[in-house]
Design a protein around this nucleic acid. Sequence first.
DNA 1: CTGAAAGCGCTTACAG
DNA 2: CTGAAAGCGCTTACAG
Lengths: 337, 337
Amino acid sequence: MSVSGKIASIKDVALAAGVSVATVSRVLSNGPVSDALRKRVEDAVRATGYRPNLSARRLRSQHSQTIGLVVSDIRNPFFTAVSRAVEDAAYRAGMRVILCNSDENPEREELYLRLMQEERITGLIFAPTRAMLDRLDGLDLDFPVVLIDRNAPTGRHDAVVLDNPRAAALLVEHLHAQGYRRIAGLFGNTSTTGQERHEGYQAAMTVRGLTPAARFLAPHADAAEAAVVEWMGQRDRPEAFIVSNSLFLMGVVKAARRLKLTIPDGIAVAGFDNEPWTELVGPGLTVIEQPVQDIGQSAMALLFERLEAPDRPSRRLVLGGTCVVRGSTAARMADAD
Amino acid sequence: MSVSGKIASIKDVALAAGVSVATVSRVLSNGPVSDALRKRVEDAVRATGYRPNLSARRLRSQHSQTIGLVVSDIRNPFFTAVSRAVEDAAYRAGMRVILCNSDENPEREELYLRLMQEERITGLIFAPTRAMLDRLDGLDLDFPVVLIDRNAPTGRHDAVVLDNPRAAALLVEHLHAQGYRRIAGLFGNTSTTGQERHEGYQAAMTVRGLTPAARFLAPHADAAEAAVVEWMGQRDRPEAFIVSNSLFLMGVVKAARRLKLTIPDGIAVAGFDNEPWTELVGPGLTVIEQPVQDIGQSAMALLFERLEAPDRPSRRLVLGGTCVVRGSTAARMADAD
DNA sequence: CTGAAAGCGCTTACAG
DNA sequence: CTGAAAGCGCTTACAG
């Protein structure tokens, strides 16, 4: 136990064991040490309550064993889940993670990128804004970066993303098969994700001879609620909505309630992501489930591969989503318009 | 720009500026330096793309500017929100935070406590398991700790917690006023939180001449669902449930669905916490809202106060919750029972 | 197998 | 105001 207040250093241990600090260091790193000395050192470690100083270790060994994780907001359940997966993988690999929330603000992203440099991180897992995505290739950072969730097809960085166009197309496909025709779309306007999902929506609508009708909104439930309320007041009101994130999902549900429309008869809805509560709302909400666990783990895996082979061409891992069908997209009544 | 691959050190800057490293250091820390030299150093910093090495700085200055945060699971929305508040407060104060998930596992808690020592953190914000709570006073850690969410009344550490008994009593009070009498309770069995909420429930029931009927469950939706299904099959089935966390809330809703009971006529429910989706489920769920922002900020504040006055007696900050009334506890039909 | 010594990149008395 | 030097707590060649 440290009684003195100050925590014991390797020197204290060496003194207590009657050996050199080099020997203590070797015992701690499982180096070649005689059994006799090893035992004495181990006893001394216990006696002094010694804990290695990671700052010193990092400085000397020149690697931080730290990975950076910059997301827009940890309160977004998608990022909550991904970051949990990243952290688990990191701690399993003996690494630490530094988490930062950019709030979709490019200036904060820049600030945190600087912080990452000062921490001498081993690598970065990053969900950038569109603005940052444009500048990212120009920056010269001292660590590899793996993009998650957002990504430019032309970028030079490794990335693991959902197959967003395909996922959105899945929703169109499903709604179409259920008898819906006037299918409107709400997409987030701050990330590439919203764009890509819109592209998939657009293509899948067109290929079926349906007319796409999309709006891009700031990622808030209120924005979606207002848009839906207004939209449903017009002629040719949509029969169904496809929305690109769970905040919009909430917005649609709120709008339905305000307009006294039942789901799905008055208004059908499908979207992202499969959060626990989507099962409980109304008749259950049809959603795309992302492989969040896989995304986090794969990002870590890509990072490790990159560290092993710094010069290999970049890779993009595109993961498929699953369509979880629930009552919010039940087959459309025959009598409908 | 660092072209060499290796990031520039303070020595490189000194060389480029034609000054000593001491002068560079002084410029960086806004120490007393002549304008002429300051300018030369600033230019050299830019030219070399210099970024201070935080490991070196921490080692030398002997403080890590780091606070630890150990919670059970960041995916629990309560902890998501609190940790976001903690991180914001920390970064604002120029500190970093290391986040760890214990998964309610005392062994992992111990592991992370050790990690915190190795990081030489400035202080810890900690939501411990009950098992850890018992041993915590015996440990001699080299940093102050502020407990959040969970806490033993006899403990020697600072803490910020919800007034759990009062919050649970609020729910009983409300249900009673709405005409409910047979009010059952489901409480988590891993934390002190569940215990305290049970106490409040018990007391509030007794004082109103009602019979408490409580069960303690592992914190999973499934456990709650099963318990409710079974309970509702018995004679004297409860009219309402009070539950101590949002997973149980989900469980009750699922059970209601399975039993084809409407909320609140067939089964009323109220609980913790006020997550965004609770408004959208069924007729809306009546819940206690915790001041999550305040909890995170206050924990940081208590930590800073403790650092300034290490010997001051410990403090507990007990914050009140708000009862958010929704349809799940609408007034009970007169004909009932 | 073991120890003395150098050095990672900083900050901070100590002189001048 | 400025610089030379010591030292934070480690690891790792280098000798022996």
